[in-house]
Computed example of a mutant assay.
Amino acid sequence: MEIELQKIKLPKCGKFVNHEFYIYDPNSDFIEDKNLFYLKEDLMQIEFDNLNLIIDLGWYGEVSNNKGKFKIFVIENQNWENPLKIESSYSQKEIVEKLNIVLDEINKACL
């Protein structure tokens, strides 16, 4: 069975720069080869030019021994040293829930 890209409800003022975030949870489906293919620091990036925001999602840690977690960074004005917000989780499902909350908040600012 092929693993699909995670569906994301993109706010209307956002655009994907990168989207390689698959429906793969290393906690429940760990296979080293899958980790090597599906987990990396650059899983997804969304830009919101009119808000000067970037949402960056990645997996940080050791891929081969499954010691890591997903992280979401909310970046304003390209200030990567001081993110507005950082969310993290070991669970793919939970990080999607956190991502949806962040995107809902941003969508309100898009109006």
Rank of each mutant, 00 (worst) to 15 (best):
2 E>S: 11
98 K>N: 08
71 K>Q: 15
45 Q>G: 02
8 I>G: 12
2 E>V: 13
73 F>H: 13
43 L>C: 03
71 K>G: 07
79 N>E: 08
37 F>R: 14
17 V>R: 10
84 L>V: 15
74 V>D: 06
93 K>I: 02
3 I>M: 12
61 G>T: 12
89 S>P: 05
62 E>M: 04
100 N>D: 15
71 K>M: 13
7 K>F: 10
48 F>I: 08
57 L>Y: 04
99 L>G: 10
100 N>Q: 12
86 I>T: 14
26 P>E: 00
85 K>V: 11
77 N>L: 11
110 C>V: 08
24 Y>S: 00
45 Q>P: 01
52 N>G: 04
48 F>A: 06
19 H>T: 02
90 Y>T: 09
16 F>V: 05
96 V>T: 12
58 G>P: 03
91 S>Q: 06
12 K>Q: 11
40 K>N: 13
92 Q>N: 10
32 E>P: 02
44 M>E: 08
42 D>S: 14
87 E>W: 01
31 I>T: 00
33 D>P: 01
70 F>C: 05
76 E>V: 01
103 L>E: 06
5 L>R: 07
45 Q>S: 10
88 S>Y: 14
88 S>M: 13
39 L>T: 05
42 D>F: 07
57 L>Q: 02
3 I>A: 09
60 Y>K: 07
70 F>G: 08
66 N>I: 00
102 V>N: 11
72 I>D: 07
98 K>P: 07
106 I>M: 09
94 E>P: 02
1 M>A: 10
62 E>H: 04
92 Q>T: 00
92 Q>C: 04
78 Q>C: 10
39 L>W: 03
98 K>D: 07
96 V>P: 03
25 D>T: 00
28 S>D: 01
25 D>N: 09
5 L>C: 07
73 F>Q: 06
98 K>H: 09
24 Y>I: 00
101 I>Q: 14
30 F>I: 00
27 N>D: 07
13 C>F: 08
32 E>G: 01
100 N>L: 11
81 E>G: 06
46 I>S: 09
47 E>M: 05
52 N>Y: 11
101 I>C: 05
20 E>A: 08
28 S>N: 04
